[in-house]
Design a protein around this nucleic acid. Structure first.
Length: 200
DNA sequence: AACCAGGAGAGAG
DNA sequence: CTCTCTCATGGT
């Protein structure tokens, strides 16, 4: 059996088992997204780093109540920002990361809408240069906020493939090489992998 | 009550 | 390049 069949088959099995991604994924897999929703996904990508999703929701709700759930408002009041995101853990670090990332987007592109027009490789390179944005976070932003066809690799993907030691880029290539270059497929597939991982 | 959740940076070897 | 340590809260 070729590897292509294996990856595609995996998707079909997960799809049969879980259907369309639900719960927390309703926003992340939503198509199309509004500008505001894209901004929330970008903020969420930082907040979910090594954090329980429940705690991320608490942090996000605090941001909404404070009306700070936007790229423009995040860097405006760092003290308030940090107190809002406290439930997601690592709050001082994440506060810095969020300010740096949102400033980068505002200063470089002005809006997510403009940023989205840029080519994928360029955006990926730039995002990886932002402090606090590693491969998984960069790719989550590219895929879920900017509709770019990049496959996100995380701990669940490694567990599922039993490839704990494998390099990030190697796994990413494995998926991208064997799938149609379609961000909608990548969004749903990755979401299903996480859903399945949590299910165990 | 210990253990862990969708990472990333910094430092050491 | 490959470990190892650190950052921190809330849920089970």
């Amino acid at each position: 059996m070729s590897k292509e069949n294996k990856i595609v088959k995996l998707y079909k099995n997960l799809r049969k088992k879980y259907g369309h991604p639900q719960g927390q994924w309703k926003l992340w897999c939503k198509r199309p997204k509004s500008e505001k929703e894209r901004e929330e996904v970008i903020i969420g990508a930082i907040l979910t780093q090594r954090a329980n999703w429940k705690n991320v929701e608490l942090a996000m709700n605090n941001l909404k109540k404070a009306r700070m759930n936007s790229i423009r408002k995040i860097p405006a009041d760092k003290i308030r920002l940090v107190s809002c995101i406290r439930p997601s853990g690592f709050y001082k670090q994440k506060g810095e990361y969020l300010c740096g990332l949102t400033k980068f987007i505002s200063e470089k592109y002005g809006s997510v809408r403009e940023m989205k027009k840029q080519p994928l490789p360029k955006l990926r390179r730039e995002l990886l240069g932002v402090k606090g944005v590693g491969p998984e976070t960069a790719d989550s932003i590219l895929l879920y906020a900017l509709d770019k066809p990049v496959f996100v690799i995380d701990e669940y993907t490694r567990r599922l493939l039993r490839a704990r030691g494998a390099k990030y880029e190697d796994l990413r290539n494995l998926f991208e090489k064997n799938l149609k270059k379609d961000y909608r497929l990548y969004q749903d597939f990755h979401a299903l992998i996480v859903i399945d991982g949590k299910n165990k």
